[in-house]
């Protein structure tokens, strides 16, 4: 039998009972005002009872931290989930380089719970003591920091680190023995590359820029770059010939439908885990489902706060796991 995840998976099954279903999200959407939505999610237990959060960001950050805390209780070896935590780690590296270069910022720019923490990375970057970073981050941190320092080009710094993040996620997925993590890493990299192509097509980026940003994946990078150079319609045509033809269909509808498809693709990957009773896959699926739930609530709250019409918010709502 697989490693001892039986306790954790059973606990996750109970926790899944409190995940928001599509119907619950519809109820949230039906609330008239932003304040009503905040009350709705607080009535559902979001934000905890100890702290009196009233801002959406605080409530959502609390829920995300609670998810990771629960997972840590169940699975002490968090390295099993590195595929999921790497995006936050590399995001913190980007922020650390910018904070180290431009000085302190007032806004909260770091994700909590990464190893090393954003503050520690900032200190390391300031001292250029790259050897204190995890081995896989040393070279990219040096390259991105020096490039930002010399050119002041934040976007270049970002694509260097984003590419390294994709590479790390791909490697972590390939190293994992869990099929779900392998599939997730593959889907994540593929979808990220499609996103880069679509955004590059819209903003008229060069071939060099795209090739620097795109990590080799199951898509043909050369064809995708050529399509992106020709425009968004060509990207759609290319995608329609691949296994990601639904991405092409979503792009035909709208950008938000495409972004929605990107997240739904991840949910489709994890759905079979609802029937898995023994392996870490069910726990990974719960984490992703919870993050997806928080993201969806954030979209609804943001839409309500900005007085978007209900249909416009609904178009952006992600598919739920339960």
């Amino acid at each position: 039998m697989a490693k001892d995840y039986i306790y954790a998976v059973a606990r996750v099954r109970s926790l899944e009972m409190s995940l928001f279903s599509g119907a619950t999200i519809e109820q949230l959407l039906a609330e008239k005002k932003y304040e009503d939505c905040i009350r709705f999610i607080k009535d559902k237990g979001w934000g905890g009872t100890e702290a009196d959060f009233s801002a959406a960001d605080d409530i959502l950050a609390y829920e995300e931290a609670k998810t990771w805390k629960t997972v840590k209780e169940m699975v002490p070896d968090m390295s099993e989930f590195s595929v999921l935590t790497l995006p936050n780690v590399y995001h913190n590296l980007k922020s650390a380089i910018k904070v180290a270069t431009m000085g302190e910022v007032n806004a909260k720019v770091f994700f909590d719970g990464t190893e090393p923490s954003g503050e520690k990375m900032t200190d390391i970057i300031k001292r250029t003591a790259y050897e204190e970073l995890p081995e896989s981050m040393r070279a990219v941190a040096k390259e991105a920091y020096e490039s930002f320092l010399h050119t002041g080009d934040g976007q270049l710094c970002d694509i260097i680190i984003d590419r390294a993040a994709l590479k790390a996620i791909k490697a972590a997925g390939e190293a994992s023995k869990e099929k779900l993590l392998q599939d997730y890493a593959r889907t994540y990299v593929d979808v990220s590359v499609i996103r880069i192509a679509v955004r590059s097509a819209k903003t008229g980026k060069t071939s060099e820029f795209m090739k620097r940003a795109m990590e080799p994946c199951s898509l043909n990078i050369d064809k995708l770059v050529q399509a992106a150079l020709a425009g968004e319609d060509d990207v759609i045509d290319y995608l329609l010939q691949t296994e990601y033809k639904e991405a092409g269909e979503a792009l035909k509808t709208s950008s938000s439908a495409f972004e929605c498809w990107c997240d739904n693709q991840i949910i489709e990957t994890i759905k079979p885990q609802k029937y898995n009773s023994f392996t870490i896959g069910a726990i990974v699926a719960y984490i992703l489902a919870r993050l997806n739930e928080i993201k969806t609530v954030r979209i609804v709250l943001s839409g309500k706060e900005n007085h978007l019409p209900e249909d416009a918010i609904r178009e952006r709502i992600r598919e739920m796991y339960v």
Binding site: M1, D4, I6, Y7, A8, V9, A10, R11, V12, R13, S14, L15, M17, M74, S277
Partner: peptide, 17 residues
């Protein structure tokens, strides 16, 4: 033993079960 582990996981979240 394995069923006990799973039972513990459920009871830790929902003692009513």
């Amino acid at each position: 033993a394995v069923a006990g582990q799973a039972a513990s996981g459920v009871v830790s979240e929902d003692p009513n079960q």
